[in-house]
Nucleic acid binder design. Sequence first.
DNA 1: CGGTCGGTTGAGCTAGATCAAATCCAGTGG
DNA 2: CCACTGGATTTGATCTAGCTCAACCGACCG
Lengths: 237, 237
Amino acid sequence: MQASLQPTSERAAQIGLPIPPASSEAPTSQPPLGTLEDLAVTVSLCKDDEVYAQGGSARYIYRILGGCVRTVKLMEDGRRQVNEFLLPGDWFGFEALAEHDFAAEAVGPVLLRRYPRRPLDTLAARDPGIARWLLELTSQQLRSARDRMVTLGRKTASERIAGFLLEMTRRMPRDSNGGVGLPMSRGDIADHLGLTIETVCRCLAQIRREGTIVLTRANLAVRNPAALRALASATRH
Amino acid sequence: MQASLQPTSERAAQIGLPIPPASSEAPTSQPPLGTLEDLAVTVSLCKDDEVYAQGGSARYIYRILGGCVRTVKLMEDGRRQVNEFLLPGDWFGFEALAEHDFAAEAVGPVLLRRYPRRPLDTLAARDPGIARWLLELTSQQLRSARDRMVTLGRKTASERIAGFLLEMTRRMPRDSNGGVGLPMSRGDIADHLGLTIETVCRCLAQIRREGTIVLTRANLAVRNPAALRALASATRH
DNA sequence: CGGTCGGTTGAGCTAGATCAAATCCAGTGG
DNA sequence: CCACTGGATTTGATCTAGCTCAACCGACCG
């Protein structure tokens, strides 16, 4: 872990970073970081490298240029919760408290831009626009965390999977065949949704059998979005 | 619902509001709200009154003076997720986006202070201290939401219950007998922890049988905190 | 005193976990 | 180019934590 936090902006090509078109998500309002941009460096990571550790002090914030990052919380006995998957264009690490409560790890090869927190904080103390932007980012995270709360607390396995697939088709860029790449493993998905790998596989297989999706190891195409949406918010009984 | 959002500061006594000593939680840094305090009103609510509805526009922020408020998300078929319980001293409703993503309801009789958002926002745009305070509140919410994510995604029923009891003893004021009052029903607890009422009861009964806690309908005393802590972070197998 | 509404307890049932065994590739070395 | 190897994925068989359904209990209330 912690292998390559050295700025190595050229490594992207070396490690075969998947071309990173911006997330199709509504781009979070670009902040006027001006002077801060000069203090930023570009960092490239390999699969499973740690961006920062759980409990580490929060010295930087990050923006993803390419690839996918997961935030992870680990229990002592190895149970794992993947809080979120971060995609190109997404910012993270700005939670404003002293220590990171989650670790952040590269799901695959990742390229990201790293900004120091200290000058950002002083900037935010002067510029209400920056402060507002930070608040908005945090609020959005909070909102999506709360949505996931319902997922984890009250939804069935297939509802979780269907919802996840919908989220991915929404956030990932469409490729030439109308499909999207799933950068994360089944295990990552399982730990994100509070399920086991096997249950994830079985639900995916089920949805595929019904003809709702076409799925290879890492590529997803939705054939019947309506059916998928119905699955995601199934009214029970 | 929506019964009594009229400012009725005298009703507290009428409805027998449980004396509201401040939460023993580290009080979130008191903001210099100065001028805003003049625009605030005190509101009193009865059990199950709605403070605001899911999807309602976010016009106010609130501080609890006494009682307990729950934030709730409801699925169409009635499945319910209680996001958090808010206690005296806690602020809520400041998520900064236009609409509330959760409803907020009084768990029992509640007294709260209501501040209009618009002037707060303009205040925050001028005063970095206010902005910083809002960001900190939101970040704390985000942090606790993320902790609950692990609970909901990966913990067993008894771990959830034990963790919840510990949280309550931490946040609630101790009464003369060393116990704390639990303002919420078993159903609320169940919907908070992603369990059923029956499972909540059975786990509580189990922990009580072991002598770790003494529990009546609405009052909890922890006899063996170490045992409870062990339960909450049990290393599986 | 009967009714209602939380809470508790018992008896199965089942969604999803666990355990185990293929299968499928992607990358490696020949 | 092809066989080989190891990890990821898939599928099958079984088990179980927690859910569901149902009965009962006790406090409070009119």
